Amino acid sequence: RDEDEKEKIKEALKRGNEDKAKEIAKRANVSPEEYERLRKEAE
């Protein structure tokens, strides 16, 4: 379940949809550090 959320965040970031990614991260309680890591992976 947690991994699904992280995949959704990465997908949103790949599409350049940072607002959606942040919204998912907030809902999934993803830490800022984890969010940054996902953002780097998505580049």
Results as ranks from 00 to 15, higher is better:
Lys22Phe: 07
Lys20Ser: 10
Asn29Phe: 06
Asn29Glu: 08
Gly16Gln: 05
Glu43Gly: 08
Asp19Ile: 12
Glu7Arg: 13
Glu18Ile: 14
Lys20Asp: 12
Arg27Val: 09
Pro32Leu: 12
Ser31Asn: 08
Glu33Ile: 05
Arg27Tyr: 01
Glu23His: 06
Glu34Tyr: 00
Ala25Asn: 02
Lys20Ala: 14
Gly16Thr: 01
Glu43Cys: 09
Arg15Asn: 15
Ala28Leu: 10
Ile24Ala: 04
Asp4Phe: 10
Glu23Arg: 07
Pro32Trp: 11
Leu38Val: 04
Glu36Asp: 11
Ala12Asn: 08
Leu13Ser: 03
Glu11Asp: 14
Tyr35Leu: 11
Arg15Ser: 15
Glu33Leu: 05
Glu18His: 12
Lys8Ile: 07
Lys14Leu: 10
Lys26Thr: 11
Glu34Asp: 11
Lys10Ser: 03
Ala12Tyr: 06
Arg37Asn: 11
Arg39Thr: 09
Lys20Leu: 15
Glu5Asp: 13
Ser31Trp: 04
Asp2Asn: 13
Arg39Gly: 06
Ala28Gly: 08
Lys6Ser: 09
Lys6Val: 11
Arg27Trp: 00
Ala21Cys: 04
Ala28Asn: 12
Asp4Arg: 12
Lys22Arg: 14
Lys40Arg: 12
Leu13Val: 07
Val30Asp: 01
Arg15Ile: 12
Asn29Ala: 08
Asp4Ala: 11
Gly16Pro: 02
Glu11Trp: 00
Glu7His: 12
Glu34His: 00
Ala28Ser: 10
Lys22Trp: 06
Arg37Gln: 13
Arg1Ala: 15
Ala12Pro: 00
Lys14Pro: 03
Leu38Met: 08
Glu34Ala: 02
Glu43Ile: 12
Leu38Phe: 02
Glu36Phe: 00
Asn29Cys: 05
Glu23Ser: 08
Ile24Asn: 02
Ala28Ile: 14
Lys8Val: 06
Ala12Arg: 02
Lys22His: 09
Asp2Ile: 15
Asn17Glu: 15
Asp4Tyr: 11
Leu38Thr: 02
Glu33Gln: 06
Arg1Ile: 15
Lys8Thr: 08
Ile9Arg: 00
Arg1Thr: 15
Asn29Thr: 05
Lys40Met: 12
Arg27His: 09
Lys26Ala: 14
Lys26Asp: 11
Ile9Asp: 02
Lys22Glu: 08
Lys20His: 11
Lys6Asp: 06
Ala21Lys: 00
Ala28Trp: 00
Glu7Asn: 13
Arg39Tyr: 07
Ile9Met: 05
Tyr35Glu: 04
Lys6Met: 14
Arg15Pro: 03
Lys26Pro: 02
Ile9Lys: 01
Lys8Trp: 07
Asp19Met: 11
